[in-house]
Simulated assay, not measured.
Amino acid sequence: MQYMKPALRNGRYTLISSSLSNTLNPNPFIFFLTSPFHTLQTFRSQSPISCFSSSMAFSSAPDPSLEKQFGEFRTHLEQSGTLRDRIRTVVSEIESTTRLMYASILLVHHSRPTPELLEKAKSQIDVLKEKYKQLADILGGYPGQYYRYHGDWKSETQTVVSMLTFVHWLETGKLLEHKEAEEMLGLNGPEFNLDVEDYLVAKVCG
């Protein structure tokens, strides 16, 4: 019993010290008593806990699905560029034919319009009709893309319709109707036709 009393006193002292330490220090060390005959020991964590796991590591390998999407997008751009080049080649030929037709019409301003002058200007209509057929064949392989590429030949078409309207007026004294212009140029197909806006702009600004 004499040996137990100091031990109990030591135990009470340890508990009181631990309570005081918790009160004075908001981040106390961990105290524990292994036995009445052992001294107090303090333990501190020696190695920090990692906040990252292997599952959170970023992978440097590219995403195959993303590469596939970019590959398809690149292929689409290349196809669109090739198609636009083909269209512009034909449009350039339309522009050249239009200049020849315009040169014939200019002679009308220097003399009275004769059947010979009008026929010379009208001789280019069949050439233009063939060029527009080539455009229709090119766009035929890309259904639903008419208005996407329409701007590539819009201005040239307005000029063509304007000259056709003038020649038609010199020959008949009447305005050229929309359907008549479509038939002259072969632009009366379901997918490839003469846009109404182009026709009206040619009539107003021509």
Score class of each variant (00 low, 15 high):
67 E>Y: 02
21 S>M: 13
9 R>A: 10
103 A>L: 15
11 G>T: 15
156 E>G: 03
54 S>M: 09
131 K>I: 00
69 Q>P: 05
29 F>G: 09
147 Y>I: 01
59 S>P: 00
105 I>N: 07
142 Y>S: 07
101 M>K: 00
153 W>A: 01
24 L>H: 05
106 L>Q: 07
55 S>W: 06
63 D>R: 03
165 T>Y: 12
194 L>W: 07
19 S>A: 14
66 L>R: 12
46 Q>K: 11
103 A>C: 08
114 T>P: 02
150 H>I: 05
118 L>D: 04
135 L>D: 00
126 D>S: 09
28 P>M: 08
69 Q>H: 08
178 H>C: 04
16 I>N: 10
205 C>K: 14
92 S>M: 05
118 L>Y: 04
120 K>I: 14
83 L>A: 01
34 T>L: 12
39 T>Y: 11
65 S>K: 05
154 K>I: 00
181 A>Q: 01
206 G>F: 09
81 G>H: 12
147 Y>S: 00
147 Y>E: 01
98 T>S: 05
59 S>K: 03
18 S>E: 11
124 Q>W: 10
41 Q>R: 13
61 A>K: 13
85 D>E: 13
179 K>Y: 11
184 M>E: 05
196 V>P: 10
134 Q>D: 09
186 G>T: 09
47 S>P: 05
133 K>A: 03
165 T>Q: 13
177 E>L: 09
11 G>M: 15
101 M>W: 04
92 S>H: 10
111 S>A: 08
126 D>E: 08
138 I>E: 00
152 D>F: 05
143 P>H: 00
53 S>H: 03
31 F>I: 13
180 E>H: 08
132 Y>D: 01
136 A>T: 04
74 R>I: 13
48 P>H: 02
8 L>Y: 08
159 T>C: 15
134 Q>M: 07
202 A>H: 00
12 R>M: 15
175 L>K: 10
19 S>N: 12
75 T>W: 10
35 S>N: 06
133 K>Y: 06
1 M>D: 13
1 M>W: 15
119 E>L: 14
86 R>T: 07
156 E>S: 08
63 D>A: 04
9 R>Y: 14
118 L>V: 02
99 R>E: 05
162 S>C: 08
32 F>Y: 10
205 C>H: 15
